[in-house]
Design a protein around this nucleic acid. Sequence first.
DNA 1: AATATGCGCAACCGCGCAAAT
DNA 2: GATTTGCGCGGTTGCGCATAT
Length: 559
Amino acid sequence: MSHATFESDDGVLSQDQIGSPLMDKGKSGGSADGGSVLKKGPWTSAEDAILVDYVKKHGEGNWNAVQKFSGLSRCGKSCRLRWANHLRPNLKKGAFSAEEERLIVELHAKMGNKWARMAAHLPGRTDNEIKNYWNTRIKRRQRAGLPLYPSELCVQALQDGQQGQTFCRMTNGNKGHHDILQSGGYEIPDVVFDSLKVNHGVLPYVPEISDISATSLLMKGLASSQYGGLVPPTMPRHKRLRQSASFYPGYAGIFKDAFPSMHQFEDDSREKLSRSIVHPFQMDHDPDKNPLSFGVVQGSHSFSNGNSSTSEPSYEALKLELPSLQYSETDLGSWDTSSSPPTLLESVDNFILSPARTGKADSECLSPRNSGLLDALVYESKTMSSAKNNSPEKSSNSSALTPGDISSSTLDICKSEWEEYGDPISPLGHSASSVFNSCTPMSTSGSSLDEQPHPDTLTAFNMPEPLNQFQSPDSKHEIPARCDVMRPDALLASDWFGLGSGSLKDQSAISDSMVSLLGDDLCNDYKQSIGTCTSDQGWRLNSCAWNNMPSACQMPELP
DNA sequence: AATATGCGCAACCGCGCAAAT
DNA sequence: GATTTGCGCGGTTGCGCATAT
């Protein structure tokens, strides 16, 4: 197509776009070459022809030269995009095939929002296409109350892959790796670690799952901008701040400024926490050596093999790809701590989603938009009625909870916390109830606590399985794999960290730490909402707190 | 039939990275 | 070493169409 032809078309198009917001913006529409205004908006066939012609002659690349040499009044970026998404040869058009869809789901489970990389595995498909497809899928399945990831995805991965090394690596035994994949109910795919190794079978691109921080994932998910952001506008500022700080491991400075007590924690409580939490695991509680020694944060995956001693904290693990949590890349940057591993404080901060946080954040965790790999949702939906059958009365009894109670109470807390914030509508526009009713991946389906969780059952507050193993290597007294590692109350309330009711000293240490972490005011709130540490009974949860505590955080009666 | 709403897609924007200067 | 340039990526926006009211 000749330049003249294009100019002719352009003139018409310019008229078409007089009212175009894009044109109105004119941000990048300034003169680029000789004062000509770069056109925006839809491409015409004439423009396409020019671009194709140019590429045929000059090849791809140097897109900024397109305008110069072809007379196309488009910026280089626009040209590249147009070429890549519409004009380049071998592009597939039309709806995705079932196989493609399956692959996308799998890839997304692996890579998160790495559209370009996903596109590399889908010949003829563009990253934009995949992205749009995924976003559409999110909405669609969200509406339908379905999980983003089908349950067979993991099953297949298990079947096809090298067990324990690929997709569902953490789904060893009867414990759901999905716990971590979906930690917090977010669509937390396995994490891609480019720096490690790639491809172990299931997919053309299936990196070995390395350590993954459920908390980090959650944080990033919570920090997602794409999905409306984490912190609801109604959230008190300090809560937001705390959350935000938690979401950004690199926040330290800001966070500390806002919460001087954090300094105190770093100074005083680090040791306490290391001693009280890390040490029981016989982990290196030197935060410098083991900056992620906060259990989950540190390569829960490493625990999955039940051999913690062989699992060196992998800082590389922190170079995780963005999972589908939809957090911003920049957020991830803060996790790219290969050069500067997070301090214990930073790790701890991930836990310091104070009670103030739990309401929204936890609820957010359950947001269906983040329900990737939420097979649990399916499972839950199937058993929701069963869970609901658990009487509220049972839930209101603080300590004699049955597994079913836990299940129902899980739902209760989520709802109540939503309501507590007086924001009945989630950022997605879903009522809290609807969110939880349709997507809460927390139900134990009324099953016995002794009953092994469904492999696909991932809960927002599930304790990453490896930790569970860690906590109870013999699995004889396996405590339900439900502990919100994000919540200090989880740490305090559960025996999950081996603190139990008998480790009052450690609990007190944690309590002290919590004071430092949260500050007195918040800590008081925390104590009020969660409970108190008594000398004779250890942590005594307020019944309300207990009832409202996600089942993940509720400590079952020890045998 | 008119209007409102929702949905899917194409395109744009901002940011970050890497190479070139 | 600092700046510029080119490019790619991910997120967001806005338009057009379909459906619901």
